[in-house]
């Protein structure tokens, strides 16, 4: 075996993983482009204006051009910042965003690697984002950034709890943490959203808060804190945060689809084992469009009201839900 490896042949498993990682990176960038375009076009439509129209047909190339602009910008590092942390923060935010995509099952045959504890792996990796935001806020040496970062940490930590509790309800039913197992437990149309609609709503609200999206977007509250923790970042640093946010949104919606909406299941298609990824993406993008819709409709929730909502409403409800699920399963 070692002789084979010495001669330079890479084991097929490793090749597969590398290929999966490359695909994940492609999905990250592709998603950022598509979502960025959708967000701006939909924002325009909700506000009764056309949105980007200049570049390309109906503004399709807008994000590409924006990417070129951001890459070409001068990287300004303000004087009093902590130089190392300031440069690290966008990277710490962006890099862990790629990892969960290797674990997510897009279709029966399209999954990078299925872990037994896939769900916990994703949650652990996504939690690193909180650290990145805190580093960004602290290293900027700017009181507005620090305020935004502190708000974000408190918000993320608080909303992890209802998220985990509702997840536990689903796990109680499926009995496995493996993402493929969860999807297969819902095969045949018995999606968990019909079984546990309350859990779906709580989980969706918690993901809105985890990804710092409106109405829970206080950390980047534009009208109060200029840009919150991202105030001092420009050019590539800003675009890394930006792409990381969209990727985390994608991951959050994928999790919701896997847990509650049956993953890749849908009406049968030719080459079903690969093309059912289309149903997966359709459901994920439906949820992403809902997130965008919510963002452009509602004002921002005040910070203490946000935490109140979590501790006084979501946590008790999810605890009760967990209890009820356990009881029903026992019977």
């Amino acid at each position: 075996m070692s002789a084979v490896m010495n001669t330079g042949f890479l084991p097929p498993e490793l090749l597969r993983i590398i290929f999966a990682v490359v695909c994940a990176i492609v999905i990250v960038f592709g998603n950022a482009v598509v979502m960025g375009y959708l967000e701006r076009k939909l924002a325009g439509r909700f506000q009764r204006r056309p949105g980007p129209m200049e570049v390309g047909f109906h503004g399709i190339l807008q994000l590409a051009v924006d990417g070129v602009k951001l890459v070409g910008k001068q990287l300004i590092v303000p004087k009093q910042t902590d130089k190392v942390l300031y440069r690290l923060a966008p990277i710490i935010s962006f890099a862990p965003a790629i990892m969960p995509l290797v674990v997510i099952p897009f279709s029966p045959k399209l999954q990078g690697r299925d872990f037994d504890v896939g769900l916990i792996f994703i949650l652990a990796v996504v939690a690193i984002n909180v650290l990145a935001i805190l580093i960004a806020g602290w290293s900027s040496n700017n009181k507005y950034s620090l305020l935004g970062a502190m708000r974000s940490v408190a918000q993320n930590v608080a909303y992890e709890i209802p998220m985990l509790l509702t997840l536990l309800s689903v796990i109680l039913v499926t009995g496995t943490f493996s993402l493929r197992g969860i999807v297969e437990a819902q095969s045949g149309g018995a999606w968990f959203i019909f079984l546990m609609p309350v859990a779906f709503l709580i989980f969706f609200a918690a993901t809105l808060a985890e990804t710092n999206r409106a109405p829970f977007d206080l950390p980047e509250a534009e009208s109060e804190l200029t840009a919150g923790f991202m105030t001092e970042f420009s050019g590539m640093g800003f675009s890394l945060f930006f792409m990381a946010e969209y990727t985390y949104m994608f991951i959050a919606c994928s999790l919701t689809v896997i847990l509650f909406l049956g993953g890749w299941s849908g009406p049968p298609l030719p080459y079903g084992e690969y093309t059912s990824a289309l149903w997966f993406f359709a459901k994920v993008y439906a949820l992403l469009l809902t997130m965008i819709w919510i963002r452009w409709t509602f004002p921002r929730v005040r910070f203490d009201q946000l935490l109140n909502f979590c501790w006084k409403y979501l946590v008790p409800f999810s605890l009760v839900h967990l209890l009820v699920t356990a009881v029903v399963l026992k019977l």
Binding site: A43, Q47, R48, D217, A221, S223, E224, P299, R300
Partner: peptide, 16 residues
């Protein structure tokens, strides 16, 4: 006022 509170859409309607 609503823009300050975080809703980006009503201002477009009032400006219309």
């Amino acid at each position: 006022l609503v823009l300050d509170l975080g809703a980006f859409t009503p201002i477009m309607y009032t400006f219309e």
